[in-house]
Each structure stands twice: as structure tokens, then as C-alpha cells.
């Protein structure tokens, strides 16, 4: 479904991603793990083309994303939930959802406000509140809901558990599993191994923009060397 081949990305003169390759299969939840500064966010942004890889290819369902504009990437069916959430604080919840709205996509039950409010009941109660009145957890929910309004096939979640209360993180686990049931593929960038293990099928570990591990969580469990070296557990 999504395939990164030998991606190199720079930020200014700093070389962030180094020949990074991995893939996400249809319906699969893959967790991109690594420490702070390992290049997780840059990877996600390089898929979205918010950061332009200097070389390598990103392929989504047979189409190369490199050289596309971010809005074209989104239109192809990739939903992006940024690390900082970036909800529109001056807009109400309903208006935030409106911004994310895109036409229905074949093979996906189209998302609408009602279906999203079923999953995120907190948002329903506050639908006419402005974004700035929401708590961090609610903002995270809104950010995910807003992206779902675009009916994506693949969801890029950048550190969704960061700075969020444990209760909300639990709620997020349920949500992601529910989305997986719907057939959505997910790339989950995370530092929190416990959270990742609860939702993801497979783990990709990066450090300094290089891939260090790609396999199941059982394999990762067995490989303490990798775990100790690249994850702060």
C-alpha cells in the first residue's frame, strides 16, 4: 500500500533521513518507533511531502508521491494527523471538521459528523466550542476526527500519545483498533512502546534516520539488544 524506498531527507544542511525504506500493507497498523530526534516526524512529513525528500521514492498504491503537493497527497487518500495537532483554534469543532471534509472514496464507508461523534463522544458535547477551549486530549481527538473527514485509506498518526493523560491514551487504543476494523491502514509514529504494542501489527525502529529493525513485536521482544539500544523503555 505505502512503500518508502531509500528516502533521504534534509532540513537545511542537516541530513535527517538516511536511505530509509519500509512499507505498510493494506489494513496493517505499523508503528514507527524511535527516540526523540530519530527522524519519526520527518519520515511522516516526507510521506506527506511537507518535507521534500532529496532522493528516493514514496509510493502509495502504485503512485509516486514525490513531487506532489501535500494537498494532492491528501486527495489520494493519505490522512495526516500532525504531532502538534494543529487544530484551528479560532474555529468551532464543527468548522474544524468541515475543513477536513473531502468527497467519499470507493471502498470506504464515508465519515460524517455523526459517525465521528459516535467514536468521540466528548467532541459531540462541545461541537460548537472553539478549538482553543479544548483540552489537549480533546484537541488530539479533534485532530484525528478532522483528518478522518477526508475519508483516508491510510492514516499517518504522529506521536498521538505525547502529552496526553493515560486515560485518554487508553481511549485512543480503542479508537485505533476500531479504525483498523474499518479496514484503515495506519502508520503510527511513537515513542511509547507499550501503547504501540497494543495497537500495531509490526514495528519499524529508526535511529538517526536509519532503519534499525523491522519486524513483529514478538521478534522485538526477543531482541533485547535492539530494544535497549534504540528505545528508551
Amino acid at each position: 500500500m505505502l512503500k518508502l524506498s531509500e528516502i533521504n531527507s534534509h532540513y537545511g544542511k542537516a541530513h535527517i533521513l538516511n536511505n530509509l525504506s519500509f512499507c505498510v500493507g493494506p489494513g496493517e497498523v505499523v508503528s514507527l518507533l524511535g527516540r526523540n530526534g530519530a527522524g519519526k516526524t520527518t519520515t511522516v512529513k516526507s510521506i506527506m511531502q511537507l518535507v521534500r525528500p532529496s532522493s528516493g521514492d514514496v509510493d502509495f498504491e502504485g503512485q509516486s508521491l514525490v513531487r506532489s503537493a501535500p494537498h494532492q497527497v491528501a486527495k489520494l487518500g493519505i490522512g495526516y494527523v500532525p504531532e502538534e495537532r494543529r487544530i484551528f483554534t479560532d474555529l468551532t469543532i464543527l468548522e474544524n471538521l468541515e475543513v477536513g471534509k473531502q468527497p467519499a472514496r470507493k471502498g470506504i464507508a464515508p465519515w460524517n459528523q455523526q459517525r465521528l461523534f459516535d467514536i468521540f463522544p466528548n467532541l459531540s458535547e462541545r461541537r460548537n466550542n472553539r478549538g482553543k477551549a479544548l483540552s489537549g486530549g480533546e484537541q488530539q481527538m479533534l485532530s484525528i476526527a478532522r483528518t478522518l473527514m477526508g475519508n483516508p485509506r491510510l492514516l499517518l498518526l504522529d506521536e498521538p500519545s505525547e502529552g496526553i493523560a493515560p486515560v485518554i491514551v487508553e481511549q485512543m487504543v480503542t479508537t485505533i483498533l476500531k479504525l483498523k476494523e474499518e479496514g484503515l491502514s495506519v502508520l503510527l509514529s511513537e515513542q511509547n512502546l507499550h501503547f504501540a504494542r497494543l495497537v500495531a501489527d509490526r514495528a519499524v525502529i529508526i535511529e538517526s534516520g536509519e532503519k534499525k529493525f523491522d519486524g513483529t513485536f514478538d521478534e522485538l521482544e526477543a531482541n533485547t539488544e535492539i530494544r535497549d539500544a534504540y528505545l528508551s523503555v
Binding site: A69, H71, A74, V99, R146, T147
Partner: peptide
């Protein structure tokens, strides 16, 4: 408020 994000939403 955030035009890049609007773009990333399609």
C-alpha cells in the same frame, strides 16, 4: 490560522 495544515487536509 495555519495554511500548511489546510493544504495537508487536501
Amino acid at each position: 490560522q495555519d495554511r500548511e495544515m489546510v493544504g495537508a487536509l487536501g
